[in-house]
């Protein structure tokens, strides 16, 4: 680490030129290819919907693959383009660990939306308001 100026302590400078540009080009190609695969899967879902009896499990699987590919894209953008991968481990952890909250955040709220739909479709919202105040046992059995 150079200490040219005491007010700016130890900012590192990226070494060399060529290999960095090569890494950028490689990451660009990876991001483009992932996007093309996502689009291909998107079109796959579109044409599956057009068939008379589309398999819900297959569509869900394809959507899952698209989600994983998007997370991979996020990893490359943050790790390479934003250079988070080059930072000190402690710094990376102060960014990444709070983001783990998203695991609960996504699971809890999508679950809540699903339960809302169940109530909408069963006794919860379809009965008159006077009957809603009764404790409804079947709803507690479900997930």
């Amino acid at each position: 680490m150079e200490h040219q100026n005491p007010s700016e302590v130890t900012f590192h400078h990226e070494p060399g030129g060529k290999e960095v540009v090569q890494k950028i080009i490689k990451t660009t190609v990876i991001l483009s290819v992932i996007t093309l695969i996502e689009l291909a899967l998107g079109f796959g879902i579109y044409f599956l919907h057009k068939t008379p009896d589309p398999s819900a499990a297959l569509i869900l699987f394809m959507k899952g693959v698209i989600v994983i590919l998007s997370l991979l894209k996020a990893f490359y953008i943050v790790g390479v383009f934003m250079h988070l991968g080059d930072e000190i481990r402690n710094l990376i952890m102060t960014i990444v660990v709070p983001l783990l909250l998203f695991i609960w955040f996504i699971a809890a709220f999508l679950w809540d939306g699903d339960s809302w739909k169940m109530l909408r479709n069963t006794e919860g919202l379809s009965k008159p308001a006077t009957e809603q105040s009764k404790p409804h046992l079947p709803a507690t059995q479900g997930h």
């Binding site: 919907h49 709220f109 999508l110 939306g113 699903d114 739909k117």
Partner: peptide, 17 residues
């Protein structure tokens, strides 16, 4: 996530395509 919650709560959602 709030968009996802509302979308999960609906029986019908428009197809983006």
């Amino acid at each position: 996530i709030s968009y996802g919650t509302i979308r999960f709560s609906q029986n019908y959602w428009p197809d983006p395509n």
